[in-house]
Design a protein around this nucleic acid. Structure first.
Length: 208
DNA sequence: TAAAAGATCCGCT
DNA sequence: GCGGATCTTTTAA
């Protein structure tokens, strides 16, 4: 498998959010083990005209990490309890990123189960942005990682997975710019976040 | 210095 | 489907 390179992330944020579906995210664990999963749900945060983006019209203590060149991680803390993991996109100076909302577990599921005691079923391990971070053990120390480097703790690979439909909907849990349809997910995948928006979603792309 | 809001999860209905 | 928990980050004064 091949690691996604800088060029992949330099693309338009909305396209990158779609292209990340079906890709494999891998994190190194102790004793040579890894946790990994296929990305099945993403959201785009584009900065310029998107008020929900942390970088909209400003640079703050945390949002300064949204401006490096694409392919770097952006991890932030939310609701007093949870972490969310993003991938910075486009070129240096543009504050935009893709939020990883859900993955389908591949390797290290026993580690994920240990970290996700509340998960009754396998699909509860990683079907949500903060659940994914809990299952993978992602925290502040994983901010600003270069995801294109083979020695990085977290990397994203091209799997060659195909034959799936991409669905589009409004984003979940935001108030500002809530009308923008920048959420993307793989149709009929059991590991996608459960939400009423799923049924109203628009069919977008057929992958070959 | 203080106050309000927040890219969520979980338990209960 | 709905509301509470919980505390960091941001913004305003």
């Amino acid at each position: 498998m091949k690691i996604l390179d800088r060029k992949f992330y330099a693309d338009d944020t909305i396209l990158t959010a779609q292209k990340l579906l079906g890709k494999l995210i891998v994190k190194n664990e102790k004793y040579g083990k890894v946790t990994s999963g296929v990305i099945v749900e993403t959201e785009a945060y584009v900065g310029q005209y998107d008020e929900a983006c942390h970088a909209f019209n400003k640079t703050t203590g945390r949002s300064r990490f949204l401006y490096p060149e694409g392919g770097v991680s952006y991890v932030y803390f939310i609701y007093g309890n949870y972490y969310c993991f993003n991938v910075v996109t486009e070129r240096e100076g543009i504050g935009a990123a893709v939020l990883i909302r859900a993955v389908e577990p591949v390797d290290g599921t026993e580690i994920m189960k240990r970290r996700r005691k509340n998960a009754a079923k396998p699909e509860d391990l990683t079907n949500g942005p903060a659940k994914f971070c809990m299952a993978f053990g992602i925290g502040r120390e994983h901010n600003q990682l270069d995801l294109t480097a083979s020695e990085s703790t977290i990397r994203i690979y091209d799997t060659g997975r195909k034959n799936f439909d991409i669905m589009q909907s409004k984003r979940i849990g935001i108030v500002k710019s809530a009308e923008l349809p920048f959420r993307y997910f793989i149709k009929d995948n059991a590991y996608v976040t459960k939400h009423k928006l799923n049924t109203n979603a628009i069919k977008l792309i057929k992958k070959i």
